[in-house]
């Protein structure tokens, strides 16, 4: 009897989420996969089957291929950097005897800022190429010349792209790490201290292994977020109706080519989504494999 009622409760609590997931996640994924095999312009029910033509067209497009490189390069930089910074902050704060709650809030607050807003502050406040931008004012006061940060012709736009995301997301992952750190039993450290371990050795042999579950989650989330990057790129580098060929992640490219100017090339968009989804899945599997291998 209780078991039966438990099942009902289980259904009552999970059904809304399951239904939402089905309607808003799985149906669109399947629909995109289906659309990607059709010539689907301005229609959700296309009739002209084209096989893998959309995939071929995308993979033959040098801009799309470049965007995959941008995508990978961005992930390779931002994931380890955020990991190190947020873990570093967590370790620093965790050791604080006073003011921990204050600093935790200070570092966490940027998480609440919208990517668009932060990107605009970075674009117009810190990194405009004009002589009156904050960073350029600083450089000029030190005797340097104005730098065109976002205008292209150099790779300096990465400074803005990476720093804005780092600032926005480090605080959140710091909280995850603090939670992880607080779950490590103090006895472990005491035992290690008795054995004479301290500093790096404690970090290497106790803290990091104990944080393995948190680390796996953090890295996975960071990767997925990096791969979904759109807002800060679009708002830092885009202009009305145009986006430079450099610093262009795949989502921006798909947005511009499949949905730009009121057009709706949903077949092309679907193909791009499938390619990106498979890359994310592959990365996820690879990461799982590496972490599991390390455990044995």
């Amino acid at each position: 009897m209780t078991r039966h009622r438990g099942g009902l409760w289980f259904a009552a609590f999970t059904a809304p989420f399951a239904v939402g997931l089905l309607i808003f996640v799985y149906v669109p994924i399947v629909w995109s996969a289906w659309l990607s095999l059709f010539e689907a312009r301005s229609t959700l029910t296309p009739t002209k089957f084209v096989g893998f033509e959309n995939y071929q067209a995308l993979l033959a497009d040098p801009l799309f291929r470049d965007s995959l490189v941008v995508f990978a390069a961005f992930a390779l930089v931002i994931v380890p950097l955020t990991y190190v910074c947020s873990l570093g902050l967590a370790l620093l704060l965790n050791g604080l005897k006073w003011g921990q709650a204050f600093f935790r809030s200070v570092f966490f607050i940027p998480t609440a800022v919208s990517y668009v807003v932060a990107a605009l502050v970075w674009r117009f406040g810190f990194f405009p190429g004009t002589r009156f931008g904050l960073v350029n004012s600083l450089i000029r006061s030190l005797g340097g010349e104005s730098v065109n940060w976002l205008g292209g012709g150099n790779n300096l736009y990465w400074v803005a792209l990476v720093s804005v995301r780092l600032w926005l997301q480090s605080g959140f992952y710091m909280i995850l790490f603090i939670a992880g750190l607080q779950r490590i039993p103090p006895e472990t450290y005491e035992a290690a201290a008795l054995d004479g371990a301290h500093g790096w050795r404690v970090l290497r042999y106790i803290t990091l292994p104990q944080l393995r579950a948190t680390s796996a989650a953090v890295i996975m989330l960071l990767l997925i977020n990096a791969f979904q990057a759109f807002d800060e790129f679009y708002n830092l580098l885009g202009s009305i109706g145009s986006y430079p060929p450099y610093g262009r992640p795949p989502l921006v490219h798909l947005y511009l080519t499949a949905l730009g100017g009121g057009q709706q090339n949903l077949g092309m968009g679907g193909a791009g989504t499938m390619i990106l989804a498979s890359i994310i899945v592959l990365f996820g599997l690879a990461q799982n494999w590496v972490l599991n291998r390390g455990r044995r």
Binding site: A119, G238, I240, L256, G260
Partner: peptide, 24 residues
């Protein structure tokens, strides 16, 4: 005037309604 401008966007890519420079 944001969207009128975007009419003139190059390449027909008037995709920029959320774009920056037009805060007001």
């Amino acid at each position: 005037n944001l969207t009128r401008r975007s009419v003139l966007g190059i390449g027909g890519l008037a995709a920029a309604a959320t774009l920056s420079a037009c805060g007001s």
